[in-house]
Amino acid sequence: MDAYRKSAFVRTSVLVFAGLPLLLYGLGDFPERSFLKESLSVVTILGFFPMIGLFFWSRANAVAVSGLKMHRTITVHKAAGYTCAAIMLLHPLFPVVPRFFESGVASGDALVTILATFKPGVVLGILAWCLLLVLGITAFTRHRLPMTYRTWRRCHGILAVVFITAAAWHAVDLGRHSNLSMSGLIILLATVGVGLFVGHTISSKSKGPRIDR
Results as ranks from 00 to 15, higher is better:
Ser203Val: 06
Leu90Tyr: 04
Pro50Arg: 06
His156Gly: 01
Trp129Phe: 07
Ser66Glu: 12
Pro98Trp: 00
Ile87His: 05
Val65Ser: 11
Pro31Asp: 01
Ile164Trp: 08
Ser39Thr: 13
Met1Ser: 14
Pro146Gln: 04
Ile52Tyr: 00
Leu93His: 01
Ser181Gln: 11
Ser66Ala: 13
Cys155Thr: 12
Val65Asp: 11
Ser178Glu: 03
His77Met: 08
Ser39Tyr: 09
Met1Trp: 10
Phe94Ala: 02
Thr73Met: 02
Gly121Ile: 05
Gly157Pro: 07
Leu93Trp: 04
Ala79Leu: 14
Ala79Cys: 13
Ala168Asp: 09
Gly175Met: 01
Leu131Ile: 13
Leu46Pro: 11
Phe56Gln: 07
His156Lys: 02
Leu24Asn: 07
Ile137Arg: 10
Leu22Glu: 01
Val43Arg: 07
Met88Arg: 11
Phe55Leu: 11
Ile211Asp: 15
Val97Met: 14
Gly53His: 04
Val10Gln: 03
Leu89Asn: 12
Arg59Leu: 06
Ala79Ile: 15
Ala139Arg: 07
Leu124Arg: 05
Thr165Trp: 02
Pro92Tyr: 08
Ile164His: 09
His71Thr: 12
Gly193Glu: 03
Leu196Lys: 02
Leu89Ile: 09
Pro31Leu: 01
Ser66Met: 09
Leu124Ala: 10
Val105Leu: 09
Gly81Thr: 00
Leu90Ala: 14
Leu145Arg: 08
Arg5Met: 04
Val112Gln: 09
Phe101Trp: 12
His71Met: 10
Tyr149Asn: 13
Asn61Phe: 10
Leu115Met: 14
Arg176Glu: 08
Ser178Thr: 07
Leu46Cys: 09
Arg176Gly: 15
Val76Thr: 06
Trp129Val: 01
Val65Cys: 14
Phe30Leu: 15
Ala166Leu: 10
Tyr4Thr: 04
Pro21Gly: 07
Arg153Ser: 13
Ala86Arg: 00
Val65Phe: 13
Ala168Tyr: 00
Leu27Gln: 13
Ala62His: 11
Phe163Gly: 00
Val134Tyr: 12
Thr201Ile: 01
His77Lys: 05
Ser41Cys: 05
His200Lys: 04
Gly26Pro: 13
Lys78Arg: 15
Ala64Gly: 02
Thr44Gly: 12
Asp109Trp: 12
Ala110Tyr: 14
Leu131Trp: 08
Phe140Met: 05
Trp129Pro: 05
Gly26Cys: 05
Val10Phe: 03
Ile137Tyr: 11
Phe56Ser: 10
Thr165Glu: 05
Ile187Arg: 15
Leu20Glu: 01
Arg33Cys: 05
Leu185Asn: 07
Ile164Asp: 06
Leu20Val: 12
Phe35Tyr: 10
Pro98Ala: 02
Leu131Val: 10
Leu36His: 04
Lys119Phe: 11
Gly47Gln: 02
Phe56Thr: 11
Leu189Trp: 02
Leu54Trp: 00
His200Val: 09
